[in-house]
Design a binder for these strands. Structure first.
Length: 283
DNA sequence: CTCCCAATGCGTCACGATGC
DNA sequence: GCATCGTGACGCATTGGGAG
């Protein structure tokens, strides 16, 4: 296993090596995987000495020390401009921002909800549920469903499942008299829960406010909760995307290291050849 | 089989960067 | 100035492999 240390300085901003500090445990990680994790910051490496002399630096102080770096997308795109073989990270269309335009075409929904997967669920009066997939470039568009309320749903939280893109297009929802549609799980087949508005929201849940004014303290609290859940959901997605970019960026750096190593080897060989030519031995 | 450890991924918080 | 985004840091859970 190679212990590669990659230092690609763009304005002194990038340093990738195997010295990632996974957590505050600061467990020594020597010679791990072939993926050279990004060094969190150069200052982390300084803790070898400073930590002994000054003790543990609390996280807040450490954060102040941290120097910010450009986003991975920027860095990788810079690399790609330097090296033709390096793929670019596509600029994302800001499709998740705001309500997608196709929502506006819905038939007067009483409530609009957004799931953590970016889908929009609108419940109209009369029991019609409409699902919008903003990321599906309009192919799927809105999916109008009529609630079936088949039989008596189990008491308490009702699991709502729909099989996205099922063959026959049948997607069943159970919606009792509740007002909140929540997503209970992520994955290939999202699971939604309908809960009473007063129920504690699970993680990853977003409830959108129904149209109307919010004035009472309870409504303000609900609005604050809704905003928080929305922010958490967005940040959750952003973190996922950031990690994906980071992995892509590290892969890019690894491939670049490989290319440069080959080039370096060739240059060394070429140098040796030229040396032999210019200064032949006279034995 | 159980325990331990390292690796990995995820959610969240904090905060700088950026756009308005 | 504020809202939003991107990302480092942290804590936690899960997983896989090795040792006993």
């Amino acid at each position: 296993m190679t212990m590669e240390t990659v230092e690609s300085q763009h304005d002194g901003s990038i340093t990738a090596s195997l010295t990632e500090s996974k957590s505050a445990h600061m467990q020594t990680q020597t010679g791990q995987n072939s993926i050279p994790a990004l060094a969190q910051v150069a200052t982390i490496a300084e803790t070898d000495e400073s930590a002994e002399s000054e003790g543990v630096i609390d996280s807040h102080k450490r954060r102040e020390i941290l120097s910010r770096r450009p986003s991975y997308r920027k860095i990788l795109n810079e690399l790609s401009s330097d090296v033709p073989g390096v793929p670019k990270i596509e600029e994302e269309k800001s499709e998740e921002e705001g309500t997608p335009p196709n929502i506006a075409t819905m038939a007067v929904p009483t409530s609009i909800y957004q799931t953590s997967t970016g889908q929009y669920i609108a419940i109209a009066q009369g029991g019609t549920i409409q699902i919008s997939n903003p990321g599906s470039d309009g192919v799927q568009g809105l999916q109008a469903l009529t609630m079936t309320n088949s039989g008596a749903p189990p008491p308490g939280a009702t699991i709502v499942q729909y099989a996205a893109q099922s063959a026959d297009g049948t997607q069943q929802f159970f919606v009792p008299g509740s007002q909140v549609v929540v997503q209970a799980a992520t994955g290939d087949m999202p699971t939604y829960q309908i809960r009473a508005p007063t129920a504690a929201l699970p993680q990853g849940v977003v409830m959108a406010a129904s149209p109307g004014s919010l004035h009472s303290p309870q409504q303000l609290a609900e609005e604050a909760t809704r905003k928080r859940e929305l922010r958490l959901m967005k940040n959750r997605e952003a973190a996922k995307e950031c990690r994906r970019r980071k992995k892509e960026y590290v892969k890019c750096l690894e491939s670049r290291v490989a290319v440069l190593e080959v080039q370096n080897k060739k240059l060394i060989e070429e140098l040796e050849t030229l040396k032999d030519i210019c200064s032949p031995k006279t034995d």
